[in-house]
């Protein structure tokens, strides 16, 4: 199975558009699994009439302190990197919303006072949406701080059996994006030819390089200042895979929840060809 991440530094550059188009085009010949990893605001399912309904709750480790067993030795406080645990004179205070579920406190507690609790952080949805195309997405619970546990789970659930897996990455270049791109065979960076676009593209390209994932660039709303992206790409020896022109007609379809995969011919071919070349 080949894994392709569709990422960008900036938000709203067209990741979902490219991910959905690519998935549909590939599904004409191959078995495809589309993973919407933007768990804070998933949107791929909007573009399919048969949106997934099958749900699975995702939980993370949450320490449960047995106050009877705790003797306030302070070991857990020392090991917690996230300032969740505070030893008072006669009790342990726990700030749960800061917990990163690392299990460190449970490992070091000499009294066995910390046991395995769990806390729901979101839900997974998945189902077949079209012939040869399966969509998985997750929705994070309101108020949660970390998206990565849900992305991890989405990727873990990815079973073999598909020829291609397309990961629609969250915007930005921080942990959720890195979690999505890590381990992929290829990353498509979608960028706009604007000063904001190039600024964020540079950061995203750096992260992808650090992760050791080869990448190429798709310029979206091409036609204006493409040269700011061309210059960067040339300098960094990153190939421009495709230029999606600005199209009012395409945007009108999009606003009605329709993505026409054949609207910009050649998109999938170029990406696949480049990916296989590397």
């Amino acid at each position: 199975m080949k894994k392709i991440a569709i990422a960008s530094g900036k938000g709203g550059t067209g990741k979902t558009t490219v991910a959905v188009m690519l998935s549909r085009l590939l599904s004409k010949k191959f078995k495809v699994r589309l993973l919407d990893c933007d768990v804070e605001n998933p949107d791929c399912h909007i573009f399919f009439s048969d949106a997934p309904t099958e749900k699975e709750e995702v939980c993370v480790f949450y320490p449960e302190v047995d106050t009877e067993k705790c003797n306030c030795c302070g070991r857990c406080q020392q090991v917690c990197e996230f300032n969740c645990l505070f030893v008072m004179k006669d009790r342990l205070m726990f700030f749960g919303e800061l917990c990163h579920s690392c299990r460190g406190c449970k490992l070091v507690c000499p009294q066995g006072a910390i046991s395995e609790g769990s806390r729901p952080v979101g839900k997974l949805f998945n189902s077949k949406v079209e012939k040869n195309l399966h969509l998985d997405y997750a929705l994070m619970n309101v108020g949660e701080a970390r998206a990565t546990p849900l992305i991890e789970k989405l990727k873990k659930n990815l079973k073999s059996g598909a020829d291609y897996a397309i990961f629609d990455s969250p915007p930005g270049a921080s942990c959720p994006m890195a979690e999505t791109v890590a381990g992929c065979n290829y990353a498509v960076l979608v960028a706009e030819p604007t000063p904001f676009g190039i600024y964020d593209l540079k950061i995203a390209a750096k992260v992808v390089k650090k992760l050791g994932v080869p990448c190429g660039i798709v310029i979206n709303r091409s036609g204006g200042e493409d040269k700011i992206i061309d210059n960067f790409a040339r300098q960094k020896k990153i190939n421009i895979l495709f230029r999606i022109p600005y199209s009012r007609k395409f945007s009108c379809y999009y606003s009605k929840g329709v993505i026409k995969e054949n609207f910009f011919p050649g998109l999938a071919d170029k990406i696949i060809k480049e990916m296989l070349r590397i």
């Binding site: 300032n83 969740c84 505070f86 205070m93 700030f95 800061l98």
Partner: peptide, 10 residues
Amino acid sequence: MTGGAGPAAA
């Protein structure tokens, strides 16, 4: 610190 500064300061 990135998080939990208040209690840590206390």
